[in-house]
Nucleic acid binder design. Structure first.
Lengths: 164, 164, 164, 164
DNA sequence: TTTT
DNA sequence: TTTT
């Protein structure tokens, strides 16, 4: 439909490391979920309440997948701009089921990393280690390499535009 | 979680008239769905493709419900700003199911009517009367009542702020 | 700066037909301004007040310029997504001056036409003729050609993607 | 004009501490500017280019002013949602001048702090202490006070809703 | 289920 | 004037 807009803007934290899936045709996809939360004071009871919402993010753009792979970890704070898509699938009993995702696509959408710094070499996964010194919630820095340049990118960048 | 954002921005057309539900405690809710669609040219085949997406909108604010009731109809084009919420429910077999909605709430969100005219009583379908003289921006359909003020409102308006 | 976002979302009406400027290097630019307005009830006086804001839009993308040229007219209602840019220039006295524009660029941004229909052949300009029957505020339809397909496009489309 | 939208979404860093102005009628205003920046690879030269944009933010809501006062500092990273307003003023020669600001108002807009930690008294610059143990998400700088609750708030909150 |  |  001409004259329509489908846009989602989220700022939240990853619940787990991203999952990358590869397909036989060479295509790849990255999935992760992020939590947003809000708190308010209930008018009736006067209590402070909080609600956390989880959002399924699907990245369908090679450059962004590469960045997600390298930089996003459990706990990372990100700005996500994408569009809503509801997928139909069938459970084991053959019933129709629907899942709504925020898709950061080939031709639209963005991801911006909002963490102040993220060290390189984070292969080991994002186990959250409270005792570990001096690190931001998310990115385990296993070495003393200088902070990597922070990726900033849109879905429409071609390879040459990736800033690293 | 502080420091988070959960925002959806849609422009699309209502698939049906809104449904209003009343609860025993006096509360009300309006539901409708809107379609957004995009078209693109497939890189491989060169064909033009189109994809339509349906979004469930839930309005949880008295003023906006009143406006939806009066002004929104099947086919109406609207700007919707709300937040994503996924609700858990159980089907008849007791299985968990999830439905994602765009909620225009008590304290956030907006709806803007984008149709040029909105006369009263257009439930019977949106027959656009070409022969009618004058201007869509101001002219009400079917009667000589003075032009209805076009509703423009945010979720945080109290009653006195409703412009009609 | 990595991790930054600069986004403007407007829905409003063009104050005049777009102006297209051509440069010696073959480049082109489209400029127009759109009005947004809001009304509210003053808490003190109880009066209803209204404020109209004008926004300078600059289009810096060939496909979008072509569409603006063909479809946008004084009064057209549009959704504009772009970014804020402040330009420095000098007045005749050599004083620095600044102008802020919403730029719909080569690699980001969108324009969506929100008018229900727009006839073809709008060469004559957008004089607003109240006495003219059955037309939407904006687009004078000087012939009986069937309504043109409504353009829907992003800044990153290449030529082949333009839907007409 | 009904049916219009005027929305700006920015994520960037404060260039200086906020300035608070008080008026004789007891009203207050907070001003600060934030930088957003983008980088891209020039198609012609192949060089990487960068452009930084400065945005004037004006906060016109008591709760948000209080938060800005307490939490925002030079270098703070924030999400700002507001609307565009262009103000006319006169320079010393009596010439009309225009300044465009992003206004986070009484009834709309939001500010979200995106920094992992916000301790007190960081006016002296954002020296990030690598050697400090523990976790940025919760640990206040420079003292052993319990973690400050991170402010999350909308323009429409009344006093009781401020989360601290 | 809309719209073009 | 920020940040990377």
């Amino acid at each position: 439909m001409a004259g329509s807009v489908n846009k989602v803007i989220l700022v939240g934290n990853l619940g787990k490391d991203p999952e990358i899936k590869s397909f036989q045709n060479g295509g790849r996809i990255a999935n992760f979920s992020i939590a947003t939360s809000e708190s308010w004071k209930d008018k009736m009871s006067g209590e402070r309440k909080e609600r956390t919402e989880w959002h399924n993010i699907k990245i369908d753009n090679d450059n962004l997948i590469r960045v997600a792979e390298q930089y996003l970890r459990k706990g990372s704070k990100v700005y996500v701009e994408g569009q809503l898509q509801t997928r139909k699938w069938q459970d084991k009993d053959g019933n129709d089921r629907y899942t709504t995702e925020v898709v950061v696509g080939r031709f639209n959408g963005t991801i911006e990393l909002l963490d102040r710094r993220e060290g390189g070499g984070m292969s080991g996964g994002g186990d959250y280690d409270q005792s570990r010194g001096g690190n931001d919630y998310s990115a385990p820095a296993r070495n003393s390499a200088p902070p990597t340049r922070k990726p900033s990118f849109d879905a429409d960048l071609d390879d040459d535009d990736v800033p690293f």
